[in-house]
């Protein structure tokens, strides 16, 4: 007890674990990186090579066209794919959260330009292909 009192009086002098029955402090977990409060499993910056340019064009073609969207969307939102676009000279990114399982996208940093944000079946297929090109098969719940 005297030793314990001494440790309390002089923290750091006696290493933790020296006193029997005392548990070591849990290591501090690093905060998981998040995008719009959703846990990031991995991320990739699209570079200027041809494959990435094609991917970028595909993404812009989908989201730049009202016909990509319909009212058909799930009553849920579990985004498995995020996209962040930063224009030169504009500090506000255009961010997208995409939930394939719930068939819809949400935007941040801009006003959603269309009346609907659910995917058409064609859009769903295109986005699935984009996901597969980047990371392989789309897991359920993405």
């Amino acid at each position: 007890a005297a030793l314990q009192g001494l440790q309390q009086a002089l923290p750091g002098i006696i290493p933790p674990g020296l006193i029997p029955g005392q548990t070591a402090a849990a290591p501090v977990q690093p905060a998981q990186p998040r995008f719009k409060n959703f846990v990031i499993l991995s991320q990739r910056q699209l570079t200027g090579d041809d494959v990435d340019e094609d991917l970028k064009d595909d993404i812009l073609d989908i989201f730049g066209d009202e016909d990509s969207f319909s009212a058909e969307r799930g009553n849920c939102f579990y985004p498995g794919l995020g996209i962040s676009m930063v224009r030169p000279g504009n500090p506000t990114p255009v961010d997208l959260l995409i939930s394939l399982s719930c068939n819809q996208a949400m935007g941040d940093g801009f006003r959603w330009p269309y009346p609907a944000n659910g995917f058409t079946s064609e859009t769903h297929q295109k986005l699935t292909k984009i996901y597969e090109k980047l990371w392989g098969p789309v897991p359920p719940g993405a």
Binding site: R44, G64, I83, A142
Partner: peptide, 24 residues
Amino acid sequence: ARTAPFDEMDKAQVTVLRLQGQEP
């Protein structure tokens, strides 16, 4: 032509992120 703001992204830096989605 693409709808704004996607018509301004030719020189944009685009990052794609794989997110957890629904926890299994």
